[in-house]
Design a protein around this nucleic acid. Structure first.
Length: 433
DNA sequence: GCAAGACTAAACAGAT
DNA sequence: GATCTGTTTAGTCTTG
């Protein structure tokens, strides 16, 4: 084995142009290992109301909210009732993460994962029980998690090997005598570089994936996957009025806070929901009205304040010490195991395509939205008010959870809490009157 | 425009 | 001999 003195100029000339991969290159930087984290993150901007619109179209807020996601997901706040993260060693736990990679047939599966190869390798290795893997296993892991590579040109394997060899983060470990497959060595992560990798990974998926202008589908998928995480978690403690939450959510989306190139499933669901107003009306028009006035009064400044203040503590803690994470596991548990969601689709929260398709195909199915049944029933004046009411209550509950989850993600929730309490106080006052 | 990081392609050698 | 693995070089692209 010896170094090769490069390719001949002729060969170079023959080399086809590097395949342009839209989207991925946008996020290359994410994988930069030793970086000043703070320098890379935009600061939360406090804006006045006049500039709110501009700020809302600015993606800075997203960094903040994704910081929230990150910190939230890492459990620094103790919020999750059920951890949205699954143990990398225990795949029995519900999978969470970019479900878009689970189904190769989906458009998003053709999108590259927003991870650099070094991070993919890192995740693969860390996922292994022995924290060491042969190249082949690394391939398998990546393939398993990211079906994109199943259809991708085989060059990615070369890239993986290239990374292993070139990247100092990875160490080659000779196999012991009992070679199983014999070929090749085991690869481990150099502990010295672990913090760097963790940091890179921690910074990784959401911010850039979400903000990457060319990774639209990816972004929405990631967001929906995050939603999925929250969906699993659900807001048990939620006393959030569904109507309030929905209105806040609507407002957020309409103002662009939660906009994606492709509408979120939740958004779509909400739009549909709105069209089935009858089903939703039972939550009372009054509450809606209250909520509406409440929602429209949301001050982006508050939102930013929320980001800047409420999250500041956790974020600082998080940033100041990567080792505050118990292990890298906590970081990359966003990565799902392929079959978890996609295979049976029973996770209960589909990607937007799923949701839309499911909805279109089976508006009365258990993908929810029996609101159609509700609407139909009320339209036709059929009997079964009891059932209708039940369905509507279910819808309401769903909406509560979904809206709560999304609000959670968008960093609105804390703000919402105070708003709700204010609303409740007002409501009580009105009732007293 | 430049530097750095990341990806890709290719060539080649060694091992199985 | 075929295939896999590992190393190295170089080109391209994007971002800061």
């Amino acid at each position: 084995m010896g170094p090769v003195i490069g390719m001949t100029p002729e060969k170079r000339a023959e080399t086809p142009g590097v395949e342009k991969v839209a989207g991925l290159s946008q996020i290359y930087k994410m994988g930069s290992l030793p970086e000043a984290v703070d320098a890379a993150r935009p600061k939360a901007t406090v804006v006045d109301n006049e500039s709110a619109d501009d700020e809302l179209t600015n993606l800075n807020w997203l960094h903040e909210s994704t910081n929230l996601l990150t910190n939230f997901s890492f459990g620094s706040e103790g919020l999750p009732i059920v951890s949205p993260l699954y143990d990398i060693e225990g795949d029995d736990v519900p999978p969470l993460g970019p479900s878009c990679y689970q189904n190769p047939e989906k458009k998003s599966a053709t999108s590259k994962p927003p991870y650099s190869f070094s991070l993919l390798i890192y995740m693969a290795i860390e996922h292994s029980p022995n924290k060491c893997l042969p190249v082949k296993e690394i391939y398998s892991w990546i393939l398993d998690r990211f079906p994109y590579f199943a259809t991708a040109p085989t060059g990615w394997k070369n890239s993986v090997r290239h990374n292993l060899s070139l990247n100092k983060c990875f160490q080659k470990v000779e196999r012991s005598h009992g070679k199983v497959n014999g070929k090749g060595s085991l690869w481990c992560v150099d502990p010295e570089y672990k913090p760097n990798l963790m940091q890179a990974l921690k910074k990784q998926p959401f911010p850039s994936a979400l903000t990457s202008p060319q990774s639209g589908s990816l972004s929405s998928h990631y967001l929906s996957s995050v939603l999925k995480q929250s969906q699993v978690r659900t807001l048990k403690e939620s006393d959030i009025d569904a109507a309030t939450a929905m209105m806040l959510l609507n407002t957020s989306i309409e103002q662009g806070i939660l906009e994606c190139e492709k509408p979120l499933s939740l958004k779509t669901a909400m739009q549909k929901k709105r069209s089935y107003g009858n089903a939703f009306n039972h939550t009372s028009a009054m509450r809606l009205q209250e909520s509406n006035s409440l929602a429209t009064s949301i001050d982006p400044k508050e939102d930013h304040n929320y980001s800047a203040n409420s999250i500041a503590t956790q974020r600082c803690a998080s940033r100041s010490s990567v080792s505050s994470l118990s292990s890298v596991d906590e970081v990359y548990e966003f990565i799902p195991k392929s079959s978890h969601v996609g295979s049976d689709g029973s996770e209960g929260f589909h990607s937007e395509e799923d949701t839309d398709v499911d909805y279109e195909d089976d508006p009365l199915g258990d993908s929810g939205y029996a609101s159609q049944a509700c609407a139909d029933a009320s339209a036709k004046g059929q009997p079964g008010k009891k059932m209708r009411k039940q369905s509507c209550q279910e819808i309401d509950e769903e909406l509560k959870e979904a809206a709560g989850s999304l609000l959670h993600l968008a960093g609105i929730r804390t703000c919402l809490g105070s708003l709700i309490s204010t609303a409740k106080a007002q409501n009580q006052k009105q009732r007293k009157k």
